[in-house]
Design a binder for these strands. Sequence first.
DNA 1: TGTGAAAACCATCGCCC
DNA 2: GGGCGATGGTTTTCACA
Lengths: 170, 170
Amino acid sequence: MAKLRGFSYENGRNVAESTKFDDFDLRILRLLRDHGRMSLQELSERIGLSPTPVARRVRNLEAMGVITGYAALIDEAALGYPVSVFVSVKLDRQVDQALAQFEAAIQTFPEVVDCWLMTGNRDYLLRVVTDGLKGFEDFLTSRLTRLTCVSSIESSIPIRRVKSGISRQP
Amino acid sequence: MAKLRGFSYENGRNVAESTKFDDFDLRILRLLRDHGRMSLQELSERIGLSPTPVARRVRNLEAMGVITGYAALIDEAALGYPVSVFVSVKLDRQVDQALAQFEAAIQTFPEVVDCWLMTGNRDYLLRVVTDGLKGFEDFLTSRLTRLTCVSSIESSIPIRRVKSGISRQP
DNA sequence: TGTGAAAACCATCGCCC
DNA sequence: GGGCGATGGTTTTCACA
């Protein structure tokens, strides 16, 4: 059984959840995942534990990096950004500096909400959020295509979000 | 200037943010977006307003549906789910019931964290989170391919998440 | 690890500007 | 709309089992 970064693997599966987290932890995570502002007292009532151990467990989960933060969920459409576009970006075949340059630029673009480096040849998948197709066009012309490392761009427009999760349910 | 659902449009842009939300609202949203558990008192200190109007504004933003909820951000890898896969699913050319059936099934699959209906022919984009490639294979064989409405599947494996946003910054 | 109580902190309300 | 103060609920931090 190989050990890696404190997690144990078995049959290619990460079994951290069975060794590291008990039922109370999982129930805390499930509740906080859906109700991030739930008080420790309400948590303790729902899982049948007194507030003190609940507070300890939450602090531990935060310290272990399982809970990385808390966020208010914001309706982008209600805010004035109703259009999401998925953009596939392929970079020029250059040195790895192109990746660093591209990624640094992405971090500064408020329109880019999510970005993944994909397997394949310097392929990125982006979710770009704007106030309309005109705004998206502006993003393409004034932001993305100005990056010299960008070789090709392909856009896919979604109709509707069917399921919107923050993370997999614990 | 056309009116639609309480928002005003100008030059194809939604200008709700300039008419509906002032600077205080935006600063509240920015803070809560990054620190979902921040107390109203701390919010009020940071934006230079007393706690009462801050509480009112937050309640209004919630009632208007701009803030749709709060969530703890959970590190999927630390929890035991280190593998994300993007899956493109094409449905059989059938009646619209196929879409409803597919979407209902998706909601029940814990592995599917995110799902979008794309423009094109019954195309869905999914992000599937599992404990490894074996777990992903299990998801394909025991979940996705068992849905009779699924016509074709294409998987893309990301290497790394470059930017992970919950929503566009207000 | 879990419990209970005390002190510090916070949210909320009525009222006034 | 914003600000002030009082009230009741929440969190934290103890000592202790």
